[in-house]
Amino acid sequence: MENNAITIEVSINAPITKVWKYWTEPEHIKNWAFAADTWHAPQAANDLRVSGKFSTTMAAKDGSVSFDFWGIYTDVIENKLIAYEMGDGRKAKISFSEQEGKTHIVETFDPENENPLEMQRDGWQAILNNFKAHAER
């Protein structure tokens, strides 16, 4: 991870086994992997193992723009940790911990160089907040 890595976090009112399932299964990923209501994730694939690849298509609902967010897993410890390298070489790490029936997620990622750090933090946090809403439904 770079020195200017960004960290975001959330606590979810759900047990870690449910949170892990919702984070890693493509049919759930499609329900939360976008930052705004005007976007969606029409496709997701996930080979959750070291050297496995994941890919999520994030697209504007009006069809004006879309992109694939993808990477290769570098570490996977069920219900505890996911680390990966994104397609552009940046790294990310997500840790999961449970206490009293709630799951805490801490996500740290290397920022890209095109957008302001605050914008990147806000966008990734919005996706994490979407995940929280999906997992708590």
Results as ranks from 00 to 15, higher is better:
1 M>S: 03
2 E>N: 14
2 E>G: 04
4 N>Y: 09
5 A>E: 13
5 A>F: 09
5 A>N: 10
6 I>T: 09
7 T>N: 02
8 I>G: 09
11 S>W: 03
12 I>W: 15
14 A>H: 01
14 A>L: 00
15 P>M: 12
16 I>D: 00
16 I>F: 06
16 I>V: 13
17 T>W: 11
17 T>Y: 06
17 T>A: 14
17 T>K: 15
19 V>Q: 11
20 W>P: 08
21 K>C: 03
24 T>V: 02
25 E>V: 06
25 E>A: 07
27 E>D: 11
28 H>L: 01
30 K>V: 14
31 N>K: 15
33 A>I: 03
33 A>G: 03
34 F>S: 08
34 F>L: 03
35 A>N: 08
39 W>Y: 15
40 H>N: 15
40 H>Q: 14
40 H>G: 11
41 A>H: 05
42 P>Q: 12
42 P>V: 03
43 Q>E: 15
43 Q>H: 12
43 Q>L: 06
45 A>L: 06
45 A>I: 07
45 A>R: 11
45 A>G: 02
48 L>K: 13
48 L>G: 12
49 R>W: 07
51 S>M: 10
51 S>H: 09
52 G>H: 10
53 K>P: 01
53 K>G: 01
55 S>R: 13
56 T>L: 01
59 A>Y: 12
60 A>F: 13
60 A>D: 06
61 K>R: 15
62 D>N: 14
63 G>T: 01
63 G>I: 02
63 G>A: 02
65 V>W: 15
65 V>H: 15
66 S>G: 01
67 F>T: 13
68 D>V: 15
69 F>G: 05
69 F>P: 00
71 G>N: 05
71 G>S: 09
72 I>N: 11
73 Y>T: 05
73 Y>K: 03
74 T>W: 03
75 D>P: 00
76 V>Q: 03
76 V>P: 02
76 V>Y: 02
77 I>P: 01
78 E>F: 04
78 E>K: 14
80 K>T: 05
81 L>Q: 14
82 I>W: 07
83 A>F: 00
83 A>Q: 12
83 A>I: 02
84 Y>G: 04
84 Y>N: 06
84 Y>M: 13
86 M>T: 09
87 G>H: 09
88 D>V: 13
90 R>Q: 11
91 K>S: 09
93 K>R: 15
94 I>P: 01
95 S>V: 10
96 F>L: 07
97 S>R: 06
98 E>P: 11
98 E>F: 11
102 K>W: 06
102 K>E: 05
103 T>H: 09
103 T>K: 09
104 H>R: 11
105 I>V: 10
108 T>N: 06
109 F>V: 04
109 F>G: 04
109 F>H: 09
110 D>Y: 00
115 N>G: 00
115 N>T: 04
116 P>G: 04
116 P>H: 08
117 L>V: 11
118 E>M: 10
118 E>H: 07
119 M>N: 07
121 R>A: 09
122 D>N: 15
123 G>E: 10
123 G>L: 07
124 W>N: 13
124 W>P: 00
125 Q>W: 05
125 Q>P: 02
127 I>L: 06
127 I>C: 15
128 L>C: 04
128 L>E: 05
130 N>V: 01
131 F>K: 13
131 F>S: 13
133 A>S: 14
134 H>W: 05
134 H>P: 01
135 A>R: 00
135 A>I: 00
